[in-house]
Design a protein around this nucleic acid. Structure first.
Length: 293
DNA sequence: AAGATGATCAACCGCGCTAGT
DNA sequence: GACTAGCGCGGTTGATCATCT
C-alpha cells in the first residue's frame, strides 16, 4: 500500500491505555456511539490513532465482553469452529458474542493449541494441523482433532450446545477492573483515583443472562437487560450489543456469501459438506456435533 | 534472593476489502 | 477505472507476571 502506518504520526501515543484514556473513550462513545473512528481522536482529545481507539473499544471496553476463564463449553465451541473455519477468529468470535476475536485468538494460541498438541503427542492419532496449508476445512473436520479425546482434555461437563448463560461485565466494570490493576502497580494513588474507582464500581452496570442459544447453529438470542440508571457515567448501549447479535444472525448468510469467501484466499470456501451440514440439513449438524463431543 | 525462563495477553502492524470520489 | 481513505482481520510483538532453578 505504501501508506505510512496511521500511528506513526508525531504526537500519537502508543503503548498501554491508561484508565483516564479509557474513560475519555467510553464517554465519547457513550455520547456519539461507536463508529466513525477517524473522528474519535480529534473530537475526544485522545492522543491515539483512530485504529488504536477502535481496537481498545472492540477488544476491551465494549459492553458485554467477558474476559478470561473460558469455560469448557466455550473451549468446545472454539475447537469445533476452528476445525470448521480455520483461523477466522472474527467468524469464530461471532458465535461467542461475549468474546472478542483477539481473546479467542490468544486463548487458542496459548491454551488450546497446546492441548491439542499434547493430545497429539500422547495418543499419536492422526490429527490434521489447523495451520496446515492445503487442507480444506471439511478435511480438517473429518480428520478431526480426536473429538473424544479433546472432550476429555477439556474436562467437559456438558456436551450440548444449547445453553450458555453468563453475567457480562460492563464497560464500567472493565474500567473498574483496570483501575484496580493500575492502582496496584501505582504506589502514589491519589484520593481522586480512589473516589473515581469507588464511583465507577457504584455505577457499574450488569446485564444478566445475555444467553445465546446455539441450536443447530441457528441462533436465538435472549437479551434481558438491566438498563443503567439515568445519569450514570457509563451506560450500556443495548444497540451495540444487539448489533453483535444481529451479526451472528447474519454470519450464517455471510458464511455462504461466495463473494466474501472467495476473497479470503487462505481459507477455502465453505465446502459442500459444510454447506450441507449447516444450511441444508441443520438437524444433521446437531448429530454431527454429537459425534464430535 | 535473584536471575532465567516460560506464559499470558494487550496492543501494534501490515495487508486486503470496500466505499467514495 | 484509478486513486484514496477508512475499516476490519489475522499475525506478531513486547511488556508484565508467574514459575522454576
Amino acid at each position: 500500500m505504501g501508506r505510512p502506518p496511521c500511528c506513526d504520526k508525531a504526537g500519537i501515543k502508543k503503548g498501554p491505555w491508561t484508565p483516564e484514556e479509557d474513560i475519555i473513550l467510553v464517554s465519547y462513545i457513550q455520547e456519539h456511539g461507536p463508529g466513525n473512528w477517524r473522528l474519535v481522536p480529534t473530537n475526544s482529545g485522545l492522543m491515539r490513532c483512530s485504529k488504536s481507539c477502535r481496537l481498545r473499544w472492540t477488544n476491551y471496553l465494549r459492553p458485554g465482553i467477558k474476559r478470561g476463564n473460558f469455560s469448557s463449553h466455550e473451549e468446545e465451541i472454539i475447537i469445533q469452529l476452528q476445525a470448521l473455519l480455520g483461523n477466522r477468529w472474527a467468524a469464530i468470535a461471532s458465535y461467542l458474542p461475549q468474546r472478542t476475536d483477539n481473546d479467542i485468538k490468544n486463548y487458542w494460541n496459548t491454551h488450546l493449541k497446546k492441548k491439542i498438541k499434547k493430545y497429539q503427542a500422547s495418543v499419536g492419532s492422526y490429527i490434521t494441523s489447523s495451520d496446515s496449508a492445503g487442507s480444506t476445512s471439511h478435511e480438517r473436520v473429518l480428520g478431526g482433532y480426536g473429538a473424544d479425546e479433546i472432550r476429555n482434555s477439556c474436562s467437559s461437563n456438558s456436551h450440548t450446545l444449547t445453553h450458555s448463560s453468563s453475567t457480562y461485565a460492563s464497560s464500567a466494570e472493565n474500567i473498574s477492573r483496570l483501575l484496580e490493576g493500575w492502582m496496584r502497580s501505582s504506589p502514589n494513588q491519589t484520593l481522586n483515583d480512589k473516589k473515581l474507582q469507588h464511583q465507577m464500581k457504584k455505577e457499574s452496570i450488569t446485564f444478566n443472562s445475555n444467553s445465546f442459544i446455539m441450536n443447530q447453529l441457528n441462533f436465538d438470542v435472549e437479551v434481558n437487560s438491566q438498563l443503567p440508571l439515568e445519569g450514570s457515567v457509563i451506560a450500556w448501549d443495548k444497540t451495540a450489543t444487539d448489533s453483535v447479535f444481529e451479526e451472528n444472525k447474519q454470519f450464517k448468510m455471510m458464511t455462504y456469501d461466495d463473494n466474501k469467501l472467495k476473497t479470503q484466499s487462505q481459507q477455502p470456501a465453505m465446502s459442500v459438506l459444510e454447506k450441507w451440514l449447516l444450511e441444508e440439513n441443520p438437524g444433521q449438524m446437531d448429530a454431527f456435533l454429537e459425534t464430535m463431543f
